[in-house]
Simulated assay, not measured.
Amino acid sequence: MERVETIAETQKKYQLKTRKNWLTPKRAPYLFIGPAVILMLIFTVYPVISSFVLSFQEVRGVEKTFVGVANYTRLIHDPVFYKSLLNTFQILIIQVPLMISLALVIAVALHSTLVKAKAFFRVAIFMPAITALVAASIVFMILLDEHFGLVNYFLSFIGVDNIAWLTSPFWAKVSVILVMTWRWTGYNVVIILAGLQNIPSDLYEAASIDGASKMRQFFMITIPLLKPVFIFTIVMSTIGTLQLFDEPFILTAGGPNNATMTITLYLYETGFKYFEFGYASAIAYVLVLITAVISWIQMKLVGDDSK
């Protein structure tokens, strides 16, 4: 009887010791990242999987019916989808190069010794990126009003007739591009400026001694060494433009005649205006595929040639 009690006591002591030492150095990291992983699974992984399954279903009220690839087949024959895709790429092709080029010029100017009060200009240029987009869009709607807007008012002084900024298909696209450029140029300026500050000044000094002009230094030193920064800004700007929603939604609501209807705006209207959630999910995954392919192509075109 005494031997059995001794074994039981030993087991109890061992269990208590094990419970006290369960938080080992190997387990501690999992304890800290556990809540973040759980939240990511709930709010990111699960919605992604659920929406992918939903793209193969038709939703009517609370009833879901499996329809296979019918949503994707419908997408192939949808003229509005092709129109929104064309609009998105038209804005992308014009706006991203324009914005990156403008950001590069401003960043180089701020990095030079010619500009004073650099801190003020950096803050002022970055301010649009943190400005509430709804408020900014309302301001632009007032500025670009065809009959009472300040832009047409000032253009009248140089003999330009009123421009239908928000009601003409062509000028509506121009308006969206202008608002996007105004909003995101400062963001890219900060990134490019950080890249400029990481370029060693010794390279410019050595080039000056060798007789290289400022322009030659810019194209032979600055541009090549900013290549990783350009990759980041171009890829991120492309992804942002492919997901363009706020500006056309607030300024033009996709009009006139779907002239500013983007893929994301069409996805939103399909899901939350017409409640075709299965079809909207199919649009979303086609957009994901397009974004991934374009990003991969950009990485290959402007990536590191030495690899």
Rank of each mutant, 00 (worst) to 15 (best):
L225Q: 08
E63V: 03
Q95E: 09
Q298H: 05
F218G: 09
I283W: 09
L251D: 07
V139C: 07
A109W: 07
I42C: 06
Y14W: 15
N152M: 11
V288H: 04
S55M: 06
N87W: 07
G61R: 09
A292T: 14
T167V: 01
W165H: 04
L144I: 12
L16N: 13
R122C: 10
P97H: 11
D145R: 04
A164Q: 13
V80Q: 14
N258F: 07
I163L: 13
V45T: 07
T6W: 12
I163A: 10
L166S: 01
T88V: 02
V53I: 14
T65A: 11
T167A: 06
R60T: 10
V105G: 09
F157I: 03
I76V: 13
I38G: 03
A135R: 03
P47L: 02
W165A: 00
Q15C: 12
D145Y: 04
K20N: 07
A135I: 11
A117F: 12
T73W: 15
F121T: 00
L242T: 01
L85I: 06
D305L: 15
L98Q: 04
D304C: 08
K173F: 01
I263S: 15
A164W: 08
A164G: 04
F230E: 05
I294D: 13
M127P: 10
G149Q: 06
T222F: 15
R27W: 08
I223Q: 02
T291L: 14
F126T: 02
M220S: 15
F52W: 03
E58G: 13
F52M: 09
A212I: 02
